[in-house]
Amino acid sequence: MTRHMDMTHAGDHLPKTSLVAPRPMDLSEKPLLQVRSVSKYYGRRIGCEDVSFDLWPGEVLAIVGESGSGKTTLLDCISTRMTPTSGMVNYRMRDDTMREVFRLSEAEKRFLMRTDWGFVHQNPADGLRMTVSAGANVGERLMAIGEQHYGDIRQTASDWLEQVEIAKDRIDDQPRAFSGGMRQRLQIARNLVTGPRLVFMDEPTGGLDVSVQARLLDLLRSLVAELGLAAIVVTHDLAVARLLSHRMVVMKEGRIIETGLTDRVLDDPQAPYTQLLISSILQV
């Protein structure tokens, strides 16, 4: 029972986890994103090759594999941060039309990326403006889409800081003064403020302490459910994939070698490489 007493003390730091109803599931829904035969070559070296999959609204897809397996290349290609050598990526815009993302104009692409999409980098410094305040970091996307009322922007920013468990009185502090976990949570708020429907995450919990990681995972999970976000999460951590994702793609040498329901791939892996990957996990 003493164990529990310790936990009671630790419980002071626990936030009131928001138990949220997930987005209702509708099997007749059409895919939000279609990836078709996407390949990226660096000269003769393969970045990723012949990758195809669909993503539905509200669905979280994990891309797993070891370093160098092409996960991040694939993520960059789908999110238009990089142009693939060949292949197609289609996205269902808010007006329900399917558009080929590489045929969008630069202006349309940017608008998409700062409204309907989010990108969470492994290193928060890559996704944040380190020398402007937390409030402005969150407010930037709003200002970019024409929000012109300072008070409203600040209020929204403050609400989002609260959502990601950053004390409101830190709103005027620069992320330079934040811990790694806070920075990552700030980056998430900055991405979610415009209510995107699709968020790309590149090792979102990489480089964080285990306890900080747990907090972030819990936060991400409830936000994804609450907002009905679709997400593509690149991770080498199978535990992260299990906690966050519905569906999983296993990559090796640039190709998808296994895909399916997350718990099925983890508990009943079929491909030799997936079996090796899963058997390599350290048990606590």
Partner: peptide
């Protein structure tokens, strides 16, 4: 996978031998 998840949500419940918990969730 989506159909399996929909079935799990609406039709088939499961009480496993071991609890797999989310960190921090009470």
């Amino acid at each position: 996978p989506r159909t399996v998840l929909a079935v799990r949500r609406e039709t088939v419940g499961y009480v496993s031998q071991f609890l797999r918990t989310m960190p921090r969730v009470p």
